[in-house]
Amino acid sequence: MAEKLLEINHAQIYYATLAGYVKAVDNVNFDINEGEIVGLAGESGCGKSTLIKSIYGFIKYPMKAISGEINLLTNGNKLNMLFVEKEELRKVRWKYISYVPQASLHVLNPVTRIKKQFLESVKREHNVKEKEAMDEVKEYLKSLGLPPDVLDSFPHQLSGGMQQRVIIAMATFLKPRIVLADEPTTALDVVVQRGILQMLRDIQKELKNSLIIVSHDMGVHYQITHKIVIMYAGKIAEIGPTDEIFNNPYHPYTRLLINSLPRIGDREQRSGIEGSPPNLLNPPEGCRFNPRCPSKMKICEEKIPEMVEISKGHFVACHLFQKNGKRVKEDAE
């Protein structure tokens, strides 16, 4: 069985505002194993970005970890990334866990050559001479199909796609066990997007680690992930193998979302989901999807549904399913 790399138990991460806490991630549980590409999917404001930032230990006011654990499992040690010391973070970042930010964020320092930035980020725990490190970096870039002379450029001399490829190279150079990618291709052109997604996938295959990718684009998840976590309004609605999520979704939200996606070559009339996601200052009682759900029952307004396993590795949090995985009633159309 594949080794477990990350376990998330009852994670609660809120945002402090003057009007109260925005419950961005509320009681979320799941594990991540070695060798998986996991997609975090959902609409804006569903908490997927908050969650991935927290996994990286990147919790900054007004974001606040309330309770729970996001345990990074490294060589038998547990490190709760929700409440972690800066010193501890420095030890695990880049080496065990690394982060690829949104392409449009321009994280590279515009006045420093790529070479210097690369060495600074990978050298910290790695006491190698500069010359040797440099040769290694060049070798690595070549293996990823990047021209080594990008190292001598300044970030603005490279296109957005090339910058993102350099950042991915930096993030994977020390062979981390977990790579987090937060909307890694948003705002990039589709051709470049495909190239970058392939690159992430190939590196994962090579390192046999796990890749967690956040995207609002279901197509991205369909193309490269093995497993999808569907989030809605700060909670997990459904987790399952990618193909099952697309072909046999259990949660009404997942089903409506998948059905609303237009497909080329198919002009069938499609419709979106009525209403809009709830305000997370005062989320609805019970299941958070109940105000928009076509299969709503009385219990949905009263009780928060628990996660049940329907088939191997396929979980859903919906009152349509009993604890033993049996369906209570048919889903309304």
Binding site: Y15, T17, L18, A19, S44, G45, N279, L281
Partner: peptide, 11 residues
């Protein structure tokens, strides 16, 4: 999310 969470006007 930012715009939605700021329902109450902060004076």
């Amino acid at each position: 999310m930012k715009s939605k969470s700021k329902k109450k006007k902060i004076v």
